[in-house]
């Protein structure tokens, strides 16, 4: 880890019950980067996010946050530095959007402390940035998928962290809302200097918005580099087992198209 990394994994091995999912992942994210984490189902993307946030205990290896071992941080201190947007968020309990976003301030408030004017201000700004301010009084249970995901991103922004991790934030959204979310992330990255690590299943979206891509396969890093270099017909065939054609899209980024009628049935690609 020569360059100054804000979040890094070194030879991380972890998993669930008896089964290891990550078999020694090494990855360093530099402050201000926007990294897309791609790979097939079961390759360990979500598990890596869990390892990076300390939710999942490591079997071996180490995670570094601001160049210090993650194990030396308290839960609260981690939450002041890393915010996480899950794939599916919300609750069946009808919190108002305002209260839900305000929960992002939890890591800054003592148990008996009421919300301070700063907290109200930060939460308000977060709602403005994500265009959710008009929803403030609506219960989160009434929101559409896109609105809910923006609201959850607002909560993450209200957490006022330098790092934002997202686990397929657009998995359940239509194409328009997918772009809306990635545009938003792009703005956070360029305007607010937020470091973003985003799991995505959509190779085109990832290639379009994330300057750097990390490919996971079978619990190890298969490739790591500039999006334009990573996305190739060979990589997609090797990692996903899918027959594709890669050309240049209108924005000058790689564009992945599935080739119909050709199926690779080897066990290599899928796992």
């Amino acid at each position: 880890m020569s360059e100054e990394s804000i979040l890094a994994a070194r030879q991380v091995v972890c998993g669930y019950d008896e089964r290891d999912v990550l078999h020694g992942v090494t990855l360093a994210v530099t402050r201000g980067e926007f990294v897309g984490l791609i790979g097939p189902n079961g390759s360990g993307k979500s598990t890596l996010l869990r390892a990076l946030t300390g939710v999942l205990p490591l079997r071996s290896g180490e995670v570094f946050l601001e160049e210090q071992s993650l194990s030396r941080y308290r839960r609260r201190q981690i939450a002041q530095r890393i915010a996480v947007v899950p794939q599916l968020s919300g609750s069946i309990f009808p919190f108002t959007v305002r209260d839900y976003v305000m929960m992002g301030r939890t890591p800054y408030l003592g148990r008996l402390q009421g919300q301070r004017p700063t907290d109200v201000k930060v939460a308000r700004q977060a709602m403005e940035l994500t265009s959710t301010i008009h929803l403030a009084d609506r219960p989160i249970t009434d929101l559409s998928g896109g609105e809910l995901q923006r609201t959850t991103i607002a909560r993450a922004v209200a957490q006022d962290t330098s790092i934002l991790l997202l686990d397929e934030p657009t998995a359940f959204l239509d194409i328009n809302h997918q772009h809306e979310i990635f545009e938003l992330l792009s703005r956070f990255n360029t305007q607010r200097g937020m470091t973003i690590l985003c799991v995505s299943h959509d190779l085109n979206l990832a290639a379009q918005y994330c300057p750097r891509l990390v490919v996971l396969k079978d619990g190890v890093v298969y490739a790591d580099g500039l999006g334009s270099q990573i996305i190739s017909e060979h990589m997609v065939r090797e990692v996903y087992g899918a027959p594709v054609q890669v050309d240049e899209g209108p924005a000058g980024k790689p564009r992945v198209s599935l080739l119909p009628g050709e199926m690779i049935t080897s066990e290599e690609g899928h796992r």
């Binding site: 839960r75 609260r76 981690i78 996480v84 939890t106 890591p107």
Partner: peptide, 13 residues
């Protein structure tokens, strides 16, 4: 109420 994992990410032990 948001789930264990989200509570974790909000800094709750």
């Amino acid at each position: 109420l948001l789930g264990d994992e989200q509570a974790y990410h909000l800094g709750i032990p």
